[in-house]
Write a protein that binds this DNA or RNA. Structure first.
Lengths: 145, 145
DNA sequence: GTGCCACTTGAAGTCAACTTCAAGTCAAGA
DNA sequence: TCTTGACTTGAAGTTGACTTCAAGTGGCAC
């Protein structure tokens, strides 16, 4: 049995997060030693699973659903594949945007507005064909914080 | 000259967003017709530019900075390229996660925890080697809303 | 001239995933 | 025995990008 600080250490999550996850039903403590929560070592694997889900872009709500629909450690394979497909779409779109960004930068028209490529991109962006990545900027993705 | 609802129609952004953008200094109205803001048609291009930036993952603050550092329509090419590089990293990471997700789903070990691939993934995720895509889930990326 | 209705405002609310805070508790070491 | 300090709690705060709200205004059709 592990106490919360041990789980925090092993999972890399602060205990505030662990308490939050427990409140959300993502993990369970098995008892108390005095005031302190006690966790089974297994919870560390579960937290790794949650971290993977978050990395793949699952929301905590989606992750709960996965757990509910599964036996607790084995996750719905269908859902995994569906998420992989979603990621594929994201990747394609990001690739497109990246390329557009590069050709916009490379375009030597006097104004970006006169660059045919840029106009096309803007038209697409304006029409919502490139819906924004809401939330945190992807720069976060490349910083290991 | 366009009024706010015309700009909204042409840009696809609700007028609340336009007012918000103006407050943030991302766009400017040129006058009033009575109470109503008046915009130059050019603002539609600017909004398209903003939409592109958002799609590429720039925050509104970053976009302001780009405008400040540029002449208003031509954007800092360096910044564009830097963002493209950032997107490259994001894409690589998402690709990795996607593949991990697929091999986890395909793995026929009795438990995911016994799948060597899955264990590796979880270890990486747990160690923060795959920092989460915070904010909105990428599913948003594939829905054209 | 008068009523409609799209606009105006600042302030407050929303969402997700946490973090921070203030106040309290309790096992354990000196 | 008493202090220490890591834990506990619920509530409130944070961030970014907006949206929603309540109350007010004014051009324009009738």
């Amino acid at each position: 049995m592990l106490d919360i600080s041990e789980v925090a250490k092993r999972s890399g999550q602060p205990s505030s997060t662990l308490r939050y996850y427990e409140k959300r039903g993502l993990i369970q403590s098995v008892g108390r030693r005095g005031l302190k929560r006690t966790f089974e070592p297994q919870v560390v694997d579960r937290l790794a699973l949650i971290a993977l889900g978050r990395a793949a872009g699952f929301s905590l709500t989606e992750i709960s659903a996965l757990f509910t629909r599964s036996d607790g450690l084995n996750v719905d394979r269908e859902a995994l594949l569906a998420k992989a497909d979603e990621l594929d779409k994201s990747i394609k779109r990001l690739t497109q945007i990246r390329d557009d960004l590069r050709s916009s930068a490379a375009c030597d028209a006097p104004s970006h507005l006169e660059c045919p490529n840029f106009r096309r991109v803007m038209k697409a962006a304006g029409k919502g064909l490139i819906p924004p990545l809401k939330g945190e900027s992807p720069s976060r993705l490349s910083t290991s914080d």
